[in-house]
Each structure stands twice: as structure tokens, then as C-alpha cells.
Amino acid sequence: MDRTQLLLGLAFALFSLGFVGVMIRRNALVMLMFMELMLNGVILSLVTFAERSATLSGAVLVFPVFVVAAAEIAIAIPIVLLVARRRRTLDVGAWSELKG
């Protein structure tokens, strides 16, 4: 097993861990953290492929992804806080006013 395969396996593991976490946890903050884990898995795969094909574009794409991730979390956390302050819980199962 060479280094590339190892890194891709790590990226897949990170992504899967994050996805399973998002799927099974009901705490909104924890779900956000797992989503960061998924992003990191994706970023790792980007860097790996970039290194392997010896181009810079994949590595450069990492920075916009960071920026978007930071922006996302900066908006998501206040929203979660506001909802939590209102509902006195972080359980996403309790936030279901829009269900049909």
C-alpha cells in the first residue's frame, strides 16, 4: 500500500466518520463538528490528488474551501445559538415546526 492509497483511505475514513456522526447524533453543535470532519476528509483528498498529479490547482482550491467552511460555521453557530436560546434545547429532533 503506497502513500497515496493510505492518504485516500484516511480521507475516506474521515468523511465516513463525519457522515455517520451527523447521521446518528442529535445535538446540533456536535453535528456541526462532524460536518467539519467531513470537510476535512474532502480537503485531504483534494491535496492528495493535487500532489499526485503534480499540479497546484487542487492545492489552491483548498483555500476557498477553508473560507467557505469558516463562513458557514460563522453563520451556522449563531443560528443554532438563537434557536437553542428560544427552545432551550440543542436536540434537532425538537426543532420540527415545519413538518408536514
Partner: peptide, 18 residues
């Protein structure tokens, strides 16, 4: 009828998206 899809469960939506 269609509104029964909207269960309010985030995880279910994620499953569907996946």
C-alpha cells in the same frame, strides 16, 4: 399527501440527500 414526506427529522432528509 406529499407533506407526509416532511417529517421534521433532519437525519432523514440527509439520508434522502445521500
Amino acid at each position: 399527501r406529499l407533506s407526509s414526506v416532511e417529517t421534521g427529522q433532519l437525519q432523514q432528509y440527509l439520508w434522502l440527500a445521500l
